[in-house]
Amino acid sequence: MSTLISRNVTLSDRRTSIRLEPEMWDALGEICTRESRSLHDICRQVDRERTQSGLTAGVRVFILSYFRAAATEEGHAAASHGNSAKAPPDP
């Protein structure tokens, strides 16, 4: 039994489906909320910018890239979390 969840998305000229793990759908939902963009809009962007992989793989790479960028010191500071390297130690 697969743990992948299928959802339909509308690209510029067609409707297609993407199968992702529940955690990936959660992450993509967080990105949509943070960026104030729809799922369809993000998938259209990924579809336009991908060069080799299929749409589903392109979405996974997009999610990974998004959170990797946020995990840098600059990305962390831009998210108003401050510099994690300078955080005080836990008591």
Results as ranks from 00 to 15, higher is better:
Ala85Lys: 02
Asp26Arg: 07
Arg7Gln: 14
Arg68Gln: 11
Ala77Gly: 04
Trp25Pro: 01
His40Asn: 13
Arg60Gly: 13
Ala27Ser: 08
Thr51Pro: 06
Thr3Lys: 06
Glu23Thr: 01
Gly82Lys: 05
Ala77Asp: 02
Leu4Arg: 03
Glu21Ser: 03
His76Gln: 03
Thr3Val: 09
Ser53Glu: 13
Met24Gly: 00
Ala78Cys: 10
Glu30Arg: 02
Thr33Ser: 09
Ala70Val: 04
Ser36Cys: 04
Ala85Pro: 02
Asp90Val: 11
Ser12Cys: 15
Lys86Tyr: 00
Ala27Asn: 14
Ala77Asn: 12
Leu20Thr: 05
Phe67Val: 01
Thr51Arg: 11
Phe67Ser: 01
Pro88Lys: 12
Arg60His: 08
Leu20Lys: 04
Ser80Glu: 09
Tyr66Trp: 03
Ser2Phe: 12
Asp13Phe: 10
Gln45Thr: 10
Ser2Pro: 15
His76Ser: 01
His76Asp: 01
Gln45Lys: 14
Pro22Ile: 00
Ala69Thr: 05
Tyr66Leu: 01
Val46Gly: 03
Asp41Leu: 11
Ala87Lys: 15
Leu20Asn: 13
Asp13Cys: 09
Glu49His: 15
Glu73Gln: 01
Asp13Trp: 12
Val61Arg: 06
Thr3Arg: 14
Pro88Val: 05
Ile18Gly: 10
His76Phe: 01
Pro89Asp: 08
Phe62Asp: 15
Ala79Cys: 14
Gln52Tyr: 11
Arg50Ser: 14
His40Cys: 12
Ser38Asn: 03
Leu28Ile: 00
Thr56Cys: 06
Gly29Glu: 03
Pro88Arg: 10
Arg34Ile: 13
Val46Ala: 06
Cys32Leu: 03
Ile42Asp: 03
Ser65Thr: 13
Trp25Tyr: 01
Arg15Gln: 13
Arg7Ile: 04
Ser17Ile: 09
Ala27Leu: 06
Ser12Lys: 13
Ser2Trp: 10
Glu21Ile: 00
Arg37Glu: 10
Glu30Ile: 02
Gly82Cys: 01
Asp47Pro: 11
Asp26Phe: 01
Gly29Cys: 05
Leu39Phe: 12
Pro88Asn: 03
Ile31Tyr: 03
Gly58Met: 12
Leu11Cys: 11
Glu30Gln: 03
Gly29Val: 02
Trp25Asp: 00
Pro89Ser: 12
Gly54Met: 15
Glu30Cys: 09
Pro91Gln: 06
Thr10Cys: 06
Val61Leu: 13
Arg15Asp: 08
Gly82Glu: 02
Pro22Glu: 00
Glu73Arg: 00
Thr16Ala: 04
Arg60Asp: 09
Tyr66Ala: 14
Ile63Val: 15
Gln52Cys: 13
Ser84Arg: 14
Gln45Val: 09
Leu55Glu: 12
Met24Ala: 08
Gly75Gln: 15
Arg19Pro: 05
Arg60Trp: 07
Ser84Gly: 09
Val46Met: 08
Thr72Asn: 04
Asp41Lys: 15
Ala69Trp: 07
Ala57Leu: 02
Arg15Trp: 11
Ser38Pro: 08
Asn83Leu: 09
Gly54Gln: 07
His81Phe: 02
Ser80Thr: 06
Thr51Ser: 11
Ala27His: 02
Arg44Lys: 08
Ile5Cys: 10
Leu28Ser: 00
Pro89Tyr: 04
Leu4Gly: 12
Ser2Asp: 14
Leu55Thr: 07
Glu23Val: 00
